[in-house]
Write a protein that binds this DNA or RNA. Structure first.
Lengths: 342, 342
DNA sequence: AGTTAGCACTCTTTTTACCCGAGTGCTAAC
DNA sequence: GTTAGCACTCGGGTAAAAAGAGTGCTAACT
């Protein structure tokens, strides 16, 4: 769609002031904002055309204009300067993330930082473990019948859980367990290590089958945990501050808390950075919200997603670079820590 | 304070219907609820006296009555039957909690269950580790320069973290570490193992000091983590459903998210079950809310707190037993798992 | 032909006025 | 001590009126 330069300037000005104020913007107030000097009547004419092009909407006849979804789209794709993220914000992000070797902790910090920085809700998913393999399994006895299982994946993910055995744990039993796991499980992809596979494995162990089964089952659960990308949500409360979301606040919160549909949205995201504006997503509860989602990659492989959720009138020009910067950073850090552990 | 039997019945009826409806209750509607048959005029007289006693309030001259804080207090202390928790709810709680050996997981499940059951926000704190000792320290190398540290406390708490060393990790180094930790650290109270102590310890290790310091520092951090009671909050969104809290929803959420002041309230709680009604606590943000807090004990020792936060018109008669039941259950389960691990 | 001033018109928001009803407090009778 | 009766109060709801913001259109201007 070709737009005259003046129309572009007007559209941009409307989007930006609407983002700032949240109120429909009228022709008069635009005069002060626009770089050129034209009368309000001229602006009105232009605005009328922008409406018929579908880029603006009016809530009602005698109100100012509000960007339509298409209007935001156009703004994002053509008008918005791709500002670099300012040093200030970058510093904040880096300070907030700190340095950890633990991917889950890293992601959780990244989520919090993002929510803080953007004053929106932040979603984050842990790196997918789909292609990951088991790198190591450890048992740490913590009682006569309980032990902690530790699973380390090739992706650097570490999972542990406490496991209660039916029999007293003896040294030979542990040795047998190490034996079995290191020959049969280490190096196998996570998806191979499911509960039924463990049952057959246990069955082949003869006398120890009964004693070892709880541990093997525990390993299966850890593998499942590790393979599953879990989805975090931070800063939901930030959303309560936006007037336009207030009305459906409860519904929105519940929707986000559920996680299922969010997951669907996220796994749909094939682009580098994806922006979903208002009704562009299929969920009624999100029709007043926008999402900015970006993938991060670990070791050159697309791996997880970070993003923000806020009202439709997000400050895209600032947030898109923020999200992009953060995903880059997270990707780099995770890649480094995986390399380091190999 | 002595109240005639009729006044007691009237107060109880007002509290109960107000809890149910959330609307000020008038003399006429009380006639239907009260067990005895008296005219509305009589009830009005009694209500007027209850107002001057400070047990009821009226929002404005021509409205019904609403219980004051003192009214709730009186109701809770004298009028409310201590119903046993019904089997249904007990079953739900037990099912939701399941069985884990991990205290943190247990608490988190308990919190969720409580929030679900009561339709309020639930707070929970992990068992205090103040008097706990280090029972075991393990290192699991996960890369050439990284390892996972595992700390087990006498309270059954398990903490782990990834730790990056400055030098390549060698077997002799690990042996040295085991040696040092098992002789110097295991058995010591958590509070002894702080960062500066670790620095002095490292300094005494001669050549290995430099290589082992990161691990010892890691142990110190784990000890700090384990000693610190962290505070969880579940089901905040439930609070959005209450009309009377809607107005300050954002403020309330932020207040709860912060955690600091909640912590203060909780650690103030010396009673078995403590009920804080509206302004009885000093925080402005909670003046429209009530808290029910109860301690659980592990191995006969007061240890942590569970509780709910909701609007002032909580169904105390149901919730107090719920919270009490849950704390008992959590206490029992934790005690059992600690015993088991010894 | 594009731009602008002017103005009538539209639609929302705010204000004002009003009535209604729920509920009270009081008085006087039971 | 209890109850019926009644005047009174005050918030909530509704309708009408006024205010305001902004538009769309026309006619004049450059």
């Amino acid at each position: 769609m070709e737009l005259s330069e003046r129309k572009q300037k007007i559209l941009a000005a409307i989007v930006e002031t609407y983002i700032r104020t949240g109120e429909p913007v009228g022709s008069k107030s635009l005069m002060d904002v626009l770089p050129m000097k034209v009368s309000s009547a001229t602006i009105r004419n232009e605005m009328a055309e922008l409406v018929s092009l579908g880029l603006l909407e009016q809530p009602h006849t005698s109100a100012g204009r509000v960007p339509s979804h298409a209007g935001y789209r156009y703004y994002i794709d053509h008008l918005m300067g791709t500002r670099e993220l300012d040093a200030e914000s970058r510093r904040k992000i880096e300070a907030a993330i700190g340095s950890t070797g633990d991917p889950e902790e890293l992601l959780s910090k990244a989520g919090e930082a993002l929510a803080d920085l953007t004053n929106c809700a932040a979603v984050s998913t842990t790196p997918t473990g789909e292609s990951a393999k088991i790198r190591r399994i450890e048992v740490v006895p913590v009682g006569s019948r309980t032990a902690m299982l530790v699973l380390l994946t090739s992706g650097g993910l570490l999972k542990s859980r406490i496991c209660r055995a039916d029999t007293v744990i003896t040294v030979p039993l542990l040795e047998r367990f190490y034996n079995v796991t290191s020959t049969q499980l280490v190096g196998r992809p996570l998806s191979d290590v499911h509960t039924t596979a463990m049952q057959t494995l246990a069955a082949s162990l003869g006398a120890d089958a009964f004693s070892l089964l709880p541990f093997l089952a525990g390993v299966a659960e850890l593998a499942r945990d590790a393979a599953q990308t879990d989805i975090r949500l931070d800063g939901q409360t930030n959303l309560l501050g936006y007037r336009e979301l207030e009305e459906n606040a409860y519904e929105l919160m519940e929707f986000l808390r559920n996680g299922e549909p969010l997951n669907a949205l996220i796994s749909n995201n094939k682009d580098d950075v994806q922006v979903l504006i208002g009704k562009e997503n299929k969920y009624r509860q999100l029709e007043r919200s926008s999402l900015i989602l970006a993938r991060y990659s670990v070791g050159g492989e697309e791996s997880g997603t970070l993003g923000v959720i806020g009202p439709t009138r997000l400050d895209y020009a600032k947030l898109i670079p923020s999200v992009r910067y953060l995903t880059d950073l997270v990707g780099r850090l995770l890649t480094r820590s995986v390399r380091d552990e190999e």
